[in-house]
C-alpha cells in the first residue's frame, strides 16, 4: 500500500535495562498499570490470543489479537478501538513493539499504523504514547514514574 493511504507513527525510546526486564514490563498487567495511566490489559501473550484494554472502571477501550509474538524481541497486536464511535468506525489498526539491545540499554520501537490516510485513531493514540514511554523509562530506570495522571484527563 502507498504511504499516502496509510497513517503511521514510529516512536523510539532507549531504556537502560535488559530485554528480559523490559519484556516483563510490557506484559505484566500489574506493571503496565503503573506506567499506562491505570489501564488494565488482559492477555496471555500467545500467538492468536485475544488482547483487551480497559479503564480502571471496567470500560473496554480497545480489543484485539496477538498476531505475532517473539518473547523479548517483538510483538504485533491487531488493535481495534471500541470506546469512541468515530475512532471505532476507522476499523482495525496494528501496533508493533520491537526490542533491540543497544549497548547498555534496550531500544524500544513502537509503530502504530492503519490503512487509511489522516486517521483520527492514529492521531489520538500518538498523543498518549510519549507520556506512557516516558513513564515506562523512568519506572524501569529509577523505580518512579514522572506523570501520575493522563495529561488529557
Amino acid at each position: 500500500m502507498n504511504a499516502a493511504n496509510r497513517s503511521r507513527f514510529v516512536y523510539v525510546t532507549f531504556i537502560r535495562t535488559t530485554p528480559e526486564k523490559l519484556w516483563a514490563a510490557l506484559t505484566d498487567p500489574q506493571f503496565i498499570r503503573q506506567y499506562w495511566f491505570d489501564m488494565t490489559i488482559e492477555c496471555d501473550w500467545k500467538k492468536g490470543s485475544p488482547w483487551k484494554m480497559s479503564h480502571s472502571d471496567g470500560t473496554v477501550t480497545d480489543v484485539g489479537e496477538i498476531l505475532e509474538i517473539e518473547p523479548q524481541r517483538r510483538m504485533v497486536i491487531h488493535w481495534q478501538h471500541e470506546w469512541k464511535p468515530e475512532l471505532k468506525a476507522e476499523g482495525p489498526s496494528r501496533c508493533t513493539m520491537e526490542l533491540e539491545p543497544a549497548g547498555s540499554a534496550v531500544k524500544l520501537t513502537i509503530t502504530h499504523e492503519i490503512d487509511r490516510p489522516e486517521s483520527k485513531l492514529i492521531a489520538a493514540v500518538s498523543g498518549g504514547w510519549p507520556s506512557i514511554l516516558s513513564n515506562l523509562k523512568s519506572l524501569l530506570e529509577t523505580g518512579e514514574i514522572a506523570l501520575v495522571s493522563h495529561p488529557r484527563h
Binding site: 504511504a3 503511521r8 507513527f9 514510529v10 516512536y11 523510539v12 525510546t13 532507549f14 520501537t109 509503530t111 504514547w129 510519549p130 507520556s131 514511554l133 516516558s134 523509562k137
Partner: peptide, 23 residues
C-alpha cells in the same frame, strides 16, 4: 533520537519521534 527511521523496500522513511521532547 528526534527522528526515527524505517525502511520501506529501498526507501528510507523519516518519522518525527517526540519521545525525547516529552523528557
Amino acid at each position: 533520537n528526534l527522528v526515527a527511521v524505517q525502511w520501506r523496500g529501498r526507501e528510507k522513511l523519516h518519522f518525527l519521534n517526540p519521545v525525547p521532547l516529552q523528557a
